[in-house]
Nucleic acid binder design. Structure first.
Lengths: 245, 245
DNA sequence: ACCTGAACACCGTTCAAGT
DNA sequence: ACCTGAACACCGTTCAAGT
């Protein structure tokens, strides 16, 4: 099991110039294939931060289909087997990416705004981040928080916000889980094709649904995924707000 | 693209005794490897209903890791390439399974009960069916309804129920999509390990979250996934119910 | 039209050998 | 400890050949 220790990923100090990571990638491939020969190199070529950055670059270029261990190794100029000195499996790579992305979710409003607007900003931000990374959702859903310290940090901030807003303690986790379930499902919805509800040749045998789809399209302010997300989120915020003491 | 035409899957009439499908599987493997030789057989060995049934059997025995085209072919006593006379890709097999499962979702309450309890029964049934089949969720989320007639039939029944309950037409699809997003996310949650929220060695640095997790565990009536699903679902039903005219 | 059999281009992962 | 290089056991899919 991979352990992402906080010490491995310092927040502020820039790594020294001779450390591995992205820097390596910018200088190494200059041109002629001056390839490494077998054996341990004088300084390590790989580290977790560099692997994470390379994985994110591959994903942004070619999507998750482009994230293979072979492609990841190639982009880092190592043999595929070299990766296994740093991660136990491809799932560990996905965990590194997940923990990186969760740190991008905006939780700042919990320190500065009323509960309703803080939850609203957090939920939209969370959905937007993972709508671009839906292949991670099955990983997150089963991920023990112990394995992802930044994910755990997000939960701490959010639960503290719920507590400060007067939520009964025994309901906090359930409310967060329910919101997260809605957020993950809605992230998939963002990726759905525009014509997902086109009933095609079955239209006349499904009059109620077809009419409802046309009615939504006719008024059409906002993307359908955003309208549905807003509708559900406001219902959840309204319902949960009533639980506060 | 695979088209699951209604004519291919009659609801009531049992197939004739000499038709392919499950029956074939029960009689064929009797013992000695009396193998088919190349060339078109006198009667087709495969059909979509048989492929679907074999896929469901493999999934129930070994999970989705066990559903490979090679294993599917083996269980049907054909070469893997024979499957491609009936489906274009493995995704088509997943669509066959999805359409079969959606038909198991209970929508009967929409004809007989008030809107609130009908939605409640539908949502619990929908979650329970797909909690056992989470690998299908990424497929469903992007699936045009045209490709899955039984899924479309479910939407017709549900949207007719919303309409009859006084929902404004232009909100029906958004409300259903929001509920579905919550249901899909919650289906993942059912599969999460029991200790998913164990903060481990980070417990003292996350007092608010750790306390909330302990408080939930302490009172612990019901599985956490069920408690969260109930909480979210009731909030959505309450919020959406207020939209009715 | 619908099967077999052989192939193709991958995939994640393992492991001996090297320094 | 951390690389290379060669292998392994798969994967989904294609296609010529057969009837």
């Amino acid at each position: 099991m991979l352990w992402i220790l906080p010490a491995e990923r310092p927040a502020m100090p820039a790594p020294p110039a001779n450390s591995p990571g992205i820097r390596e990638r910018e200088t190494a491939p200059k041109n002629g294939a001056e390839r490494r020969r077998a054996g341990r190199p004088a300084a390590a070529v790989l580290d977790l931060a560099g692997i994470t950055a390379a994985a994110l670059r591959l994903i942004s270029e070619n999507g998750y289909d482009g994230l293979t261990m072979a492609a990841l190794a190639r982009s880092l100029h190592v043999a595929p087997s070299a990766l296994y000195n740093h991660v136990e499996s491809k799932r560990d790579v996905l965990l590194l990416v997940e923990d990186h992305l969760t740190a991008l979710v905006d939780v700042t409003a919990f320190a500065a705004e009323p509960w309703e607007s803080a939850v609203r900003k957090w939920a939209w931000s969370y959905r937007d981040v993972f709508a671009e990374h839906t292949p991670l959702i099955p990983v997150i859903a089963v991920l023990p928080v112990t394995d992802a310290p930044r994910t755990l940090a997000m939960y701490e901030t959010v639960s503290a916000g719920f507590r400060a807003a007067g939520f009964p303690e025994e309901r906090i986790v359930s409310a967060i889980v329910a919101l997260e379930s809605f957020i993950f499902g809605s992230a998939y919805d963002v990726t759905a094709p525009a014509d997902i509800f086109d009933s095609g040749s079955m239209a006349e045998s499904t009059p109620s649904f077809t009419g409802a789809v046309r009615s939504l399209a006719a008024q059409g302010h906002g993307k359908p995924a955003d309208v549905a997300f807003s509708l559900g989120l406001e219902a959840l915020i309204g319902g949960f707000g009533a639980l506060r003491e």
